[in-house]
Amino acid sequence: MKDRTAEHRERLDSHVFVCTNNREEYDCCADANGDETLTAVKEWLRERDAFWSSVSVAETGCLGLCSEGGAAIAIQPRDEWYSDVQPEDVPGLLESVFGPEADQVGVPPEQPADD
C-alpha cells in the first residue's frame, strides 16, 4: 500500500462527484439524466483544459439528494451540494464555481463574513 495523500493534495483543487445511482423503487439520478449530466461535466472541463488536471470528476452512488428533477452533484472540498441538475444546467453551475473559463480553479471560494 502507498500513501499518496500529499501528492494528490498538491495536484488537485476540487473533486466533482456526479450521482448516477439506480434505484428500482424510488426516484434516482440514473433515471433523471445522471449519465448525461456526468458527460456534460466532463465535456465542460475538457473544453477548458481542466479535466484531470486540477479538477477530478467521479461517478458516484447516492449522495442523498435524489429526485426526479435531475442528478445530484457534490463539489469537494468546497462543500457545495446541488440537486435536480440537468445536463443543460452544467455550464452555469460550473461557471459559478470555477469561473467561465475554469480560471478560478485553485482559488478558494469566498468565506462568508462573520457577523
Rank of each mutant, 00 (worst) to 15 (best):
K2F: 14
D3N: 13
D3R: 08
R4H: 10
R4E: 14
E7Q: 14
E7Y: 10
H8Q: 14
H8C: 06
R9W: 11
R11S: 13
L12C: 00
L12G: 01
L12V: 04
L12S: 05
D13Y: 12
D13N: 12
D13F: 14
S14C: 06
H15N: 07
H15S: 06
H15A: 12
V16A: 00
C19Y: 11
C19V: 12
N21P: 04
N21E: 13
N22Q: 14
Y26C: 10
Y26A: 10
A30I: 01
A30V: 00
D31V: 06
D31T: 07
N33D: 12
N33F: 12
G34M: 09
G34H: 04
E36C: 00
E36R: 05
T37K: 02
T37G: 03
T39H: 04
T39E: 14
V41R: 01
V41S: 01
K42S: 04
K42M: 13
E43P: 00
W44K: 00
W44R: 00
R46K: 15
E47D: 15
D49F: 08
D49T: 12
F51Y: 15
S53W: 07
S53C: 01
V55P: 02
S56A: 09
V57N: 04
A58K: 12
E59Q: 15
E59K: 14
T60E: 02
T60Q: 06
C62L: 09
G64W: 10
C66T: 13
C66Y: 11
S67C: 09
S67W: 08
E68W: 12
E68K: 13
G69T: 06
G69E: 15
G70I: 09
A72W: 04
I73C: 03
A74G: 01
I75E: 02
I75W: 01
D79W: 05
D79K: 10
D79A: 14
E80S: 08
W81L: 11
Y82S: 08
S83D: 14
D84F: 03
D84A: 14
P87T: 04
P91S: 07
P91A: 03
L93Q: 13
L94M: 05
L94R: 03
L94K: 02
E95H: 11
S96Y: 05
S96R: 11
S96E: 13
F98N: 02
F98H: 02
P100E: 15
E101I: 00
E101S: 12
A102H: 10
A102M: 14
D103I: 04
D103N: 13
Q104T: 07
Q104S: 11
Q104L: 15
G106V: 09
G106Y: 08
P108T: 04
P109E: 15
P109Y: 13
P109S: 11
A113F: 07
A113R: 12
A113I: 13
A113L: 14
D114G: 03
D114Y: 05
D115M: 06
D115G: 01
